[in-house]
Simulated assay, not measured.
Amino acid sequence: MKVVSRIINVVLVIVVLCSLVAAIGSAITKEPMLLTVIRSNSMHPVWERGDMVIIENLKEEKTIHKEDIIFFKTEEGSLSKQGWIAHRVMSGSREEGFITKGDANKYTDQSSDGTVPIKQEWVAGKAITIGETPIVIPKIGYLSLWAEKFQSNPLLIPVIALVLAGLIAFGEIKFTKKRKKKSQGMELQLIYIVGGLTIAVIMGGTMLTSGQNLGLAYQVSDKSQGVIMGSDVGILKVGDKVSRPLSELSNNGAFPLIGTINTSDKQIELSHERVILSKGEQIKSTYTVKAEIPGKYESSIRVGLFYPFLPASLIYFLSEQSYWLALVSVSLVPGLPLMVYPFVNGKMRRKTAKLLRRKKRKIQSSLPF
């Protein structure tokens, strides 16, 4: 039974870690990364919804071959609203674009209304294969698919946190008497610490996916205006002032959210820098570029939504220093009581200190000097 229990624990840890890598990595890069979850059955029987696939992220100079399974997002046609798609390359080239098709589909993607051959720059990666078989981890992606519900119902987060804390407390009450002193070690302390970290990671992951990082390239000229491909602003003449929509902040949860918008570019003015969103509230934000100093600019605007686990003024201050500092600080708050408890509880603290001293003496005695 002990062996079976350990195997189950290892499997659960792998599932959670893979899901976190897929969710958080994709949230940061805004594209499939290393591990990605399959959301449809269009490639059956190669893989199915809920499977997780290991992918290789492609750079533009990488060659794409026929029969490769690529991950792409179209910007034209009826498929442009479906997000990232994983289909097989049937034909094509870098210059002409690629014709793609799901193995379970009768027709190619380009048979859809307005869908053109897939351009190389639309491709984020391809499935890693052994021979001709992709590396697929069956069904463990369902945890990530389920976790996506957090974005539309933030109330689930504190509920899960309370459930985790309750399970840990229940486990301590029920099994403490049954544990032998020799086998206890730091097991209970680690349960508290890992439980707190798990809550923090879940919190951070959901706040990260609700945020946005907008890259903004533009140029300021002394002489004339112009257009830059991929830029909503383009080339501005000194003295020009241009406003554009930025993001729509919304709160579909049951309690307030704290929103922050930051940029280090002094020529960009933001319509909203600090907001508190009540239940059901939506705010449309904009940015304004005031062309003052000639030059080329690669700026970014970071939009963040945070749970109100810290005072709004403190979250604003932290986000001005760094978005990541604010994210980590807010994420740690709900899990902090669990992580700190082993060091606050006198009996547990003494056991931990005693065990650490024993381990230290053991290590010192084994050293050759």
Results as ranks from 00 to 15, higher is better:
1 M>K: 04
5 S>C: 00
12 L>I: 10
13 V>T: 14
13 V>N: 10
14 I>V: 15
15 V>H: 11
19 S>Q: 02
21 V>R: 02
21 V>L: 09
25 G>T: 08
27 A>R: 02
33 M>D: 09
34 L>P: 02
45 P>Q: 11
47 W>T: 09
50 G>H: 00
57 N>G: 00
62 K>V: 01
64 I>M: 07
66 K>L: 03
67 E>D: 13
76 E>Q: 11
76 E>S: 13
84 W>D: 04
85 I>N: 06
86 A>G: 14
89 V>M: 05
93 S>W: 04
93 S>V: 04
98 F>R: 00
99 I>K: 13
102 G>S: 01
114 G>H: 12
115 T>D: 14
115 T>P: 01
117 P>M: 12
121 E>K: 05
125 G>W: 00
130 I>D: 08
133 T>A: 12
147 A>N: 05
148 E>G: 12
149 K>Q: 08
155 L>S: 08
159 V>G: 02
160 I>F: 14
161 A>W: 03
164 L>A: 12
171 G>E: 12
176 T>M: 08
191 I>W: 07
194 V>N: 00
205 G>C: 10
215 G>A: 11
218 Y>E: 13
226 G>N: 06
232 D>K: 15
241 K>D: 15
244 R>E: 07
246 L>C: 01
251 N>E: 13
262 N>L: 00
262 N>K: 10
264 S>C: 07
265 D>A: 09
270 L>Q: 05
272 H>N: 13
276 I>Q: 09
277 L>H: 09
284 K>G: 07
288 T>F: 05
292 E>Y: 03
296 K>Q: 14
296 K>V: 04
298 E>Y: 09
302 R>G: 00
305 L>P: 01
312 A>Q: 08
313 S>I: 09
321 Q>S: 08
323 Y>L: 05
333 V>T: 10
336 L>T: 15
337 P>G: 08
337 P>S: 05
339 M>Y: 15
340 V>R: 11
340 V>T: 13
341 Y>R: 13
345 N>R: 14
349 R>Q: 10
350 R>H: 14
363 I>H: 11
364 Q>T: 07
367 L>V: 02
